[in-house]
Amino acid sequence: KYLVLALYDYQEKSPREVTMKKGDILTLLNSTNKDWWKVEVNGRQGFVPAAYVKYL
């Protein structure tokens, strides 16, 4: 498993997404889509914009 760092705040806009705050450390679950990565944060799984996170 990889960890990624939230570069920006992101507010979920659909039930498939998750909210994150700048500085959050997220567990990367799937990065096959170049635009949306599946992550786990605070016990929830969902998608965030790939451009908003970077590998640690």
Rank of each mutant, 00 (worst) to 15 (best):
Q45F: 08
D9K: 02
E40F: 07
K13P: 04
L28C: 08
L26S: 02
Y55Q: 13
T32R: 12
I25S: 03
L56D: 06
A50F: 02
V39W: 00
K22E: 08
T32P: 04
W37I: 09
K13Q: 15
V18N: 04
L7A: 06
N30R: 07
L26K: 00
S31M: 12
T19M: 04
Y8A: 13
K1L: 13
S31R: 12
V18A: 05
E40D: 11
L56C: 11
Y2F: 14
Y8C: 12
M20F: 11
N30K: 07
G46E: 01
T19F: 04
Y2Q: 15
G43P: 01
E40V: 08
M20V: 10
S14L: 09
A51I: 11
K1T: 14
Y52A: 12
W36C: 07
E12Y: 05
L7Y: 04
L28E: 00
E40W: 07
D24F: 04
E17M: 05
V18H: 03
Y55L: 15
I25P: 02
E17Y: 06
E40P: 00
G43R: 05
K21S: 09
T27Q: 12
K13S: 11
P15F: 09
V39D: 00
Y52E: 02
G46A: 04
L26A: 09
D9I: 02
K22V: 08
Y10P: 01
N30H: 08
D9C: 05
G43M: 05
K34L: 10
E12W: 05
S14W: 06
K1N: 13
M20D: 00
Q45L: 08
D35I: 14
V4H: 04
P49C: 04
A6T: 04
N30F: 07
E17K: 05
A50N: 03
T19P: 07
Y52F: 13
K1F: 13
T19H: 05
E12A: 15
Y2S: 13
V41S: 12
G23T: 02
Y2L: 14
L26M: 14
V4C: 11
N42P: 05
Q45Y: 08
K13M: 13
Q11P: 06
D35K: 15
T32M: 12
P15A: 12
M20E: 00
Y8P: 01
N42C: 09
Y2W: 14
P15R: 09
Y2C: 15
T27P: 13
G46F: 05
K13E: 09
N42S: 10
L26W: 02
V18G: 02
Y52W: 06
Y8R: 13
K22F: 05
T27S: 10
K13W: 04
D35H: 15
G43F: 05
V48Q: 00
G43S: 07
Q45A: 13
P15E: 12
P49Y: 02
V4E: 00
S14H: 12
A51Q: 13
Y8H: 12
W36D: 01
P49R: 04
E12K: 14
T27F: 12
R16I: 13
K34M: 10
G43N: 08
Y10E: 01
A6F: 03
Y10C: 02
Y10D: 01
R44P: 01
Q45K: 11
V41K: 14
N33R: 10
K54E: 11
T19K: 04
W36K: 02
G46W: 02
T27A: 10
E40G: 06
N30M: 08
V53P: 00
V41M: 12
V41R: 13
K34G: 10
L28W: 02
M20N: 00
E17G: 13
L5M: 14
K38F: 15
Y10W: 11
N42D: 13
L3I: 10
A6W: 04
S31V: 10
S14V: 05
L5K: 09
A51R: 14
D9G: 06
D24G: 03
G43T: 05
A51N: 13
K22M: 08
V41A: 11
N30E: 14
Q11R: 10
V18S: 02
L26F: 06
W37Y: 10
A51T: 12
L26E: 00
S31H: 10
G23R: 02
S31T: 12
A6L: 03
K34P: 15
M20G: 00
K21D: 04
Q11N: 14
K38V: 13
K13I: 08
S14F: 06
K21I: 09
V39Q: 00
K34A: 13
K54D: 09
Y2E: 12
L28M: 05
Y8M: 14
F47A: 02
K22N: 04
V18M: 11
S14Y: 07
Y52L: 12
A51W: 07
N30Q: 11
A51S: 14
K13C: 10
K1R: 14
D24W: 10
V4R: 02
F47N: 04
N33I: 06
D9V: 02
V53W: 01
P49M: 04
E12Q: 13
I25G: 01
P49S: 02
E12S: 15
L29Y: 05
Y2M: 12
L7N: 04
V4P: 01
I25H: 06
R44I: 08
K21H: 11
K38A: 10
L56I: 13
V41T: 11
M20I: 15
W37C: 06
L26G: 09
D9P: 05
V18R: 02
Y55G: 08
K21V: 09
G23A: 03
L3C: 10
V48K: 00
E17S: 07
K1M: 14
T32Q: 13
N30V: 09
T19S: 15
D35M: 14
P15W: 09
K21Q: 10
S14M: 08
F47G: 01
L56N: 06
N42E: 11
K38N: 06
Y52M: 13
V4D: 00
E17D: 06
T19L: 03
G23H: 05
P15L: 10
K22S: 08
V48M: 01
M20Y: 02
L5Q: 12
Q11D: 14
P49A: 02
Q45N: 08
Y10M: 01
V48C: 03
E40A: 09
A50Y: 03
N42Y: 09
L7V: 09
R44D: 04
T19I: 03
Y2T: 15
V4Q: 01
K22I: 06
S14R: 09
K38Y: 15
D9M: 03
Y52T: 07
L26Y: 10
Y55C: 15
P15N: 11
E12P: 15
G46V: 04
L29Q: 04
W37E: 01
K38E: 13
T19W: 04
V4Y: 11
K21Y: 10
E12N: 07
A50L: 02
G46K: 02
E40N: 06
Q45R: 13
V4S: 03
K54M: 15
V53R: 00
R16T: 12
L56Y: 14
N33W: 07
K38C: 12
K54R: 14
V41Y: 11
V39G: 00
V41I: 15
P15Q: 10
V18Q: 03
Y52N: 05
L7R: 06
E40Q: 09
Q45V: 14
L28G: 01
D9A: 07
K38Q: 14
P15D: 13
L3N: 07
A51C: 12
V41E: 03
S31N: 15
K34D: 13
F47C: 11
L28A: 03
K38T: 07
D35T: 14
T27V: 15
E40S: 10
K34C: 10
K22G: 06
N33P: 05
L5Y: 12
M20T: 03
G23L: 02
L28V: 09
D24I: 04
M20S: 01
L5R: 09
N30T: 08
A6Y: 03
D9H: 05
M20P: 00
V48E: 00
V39Y: 00
Y2V: 15
Y55R: 14
K54F: 11
S14C: 09
R44Y: 06
I25C: 06
L26T: 01
K21P: 00
D35P: 03
V53H: 00
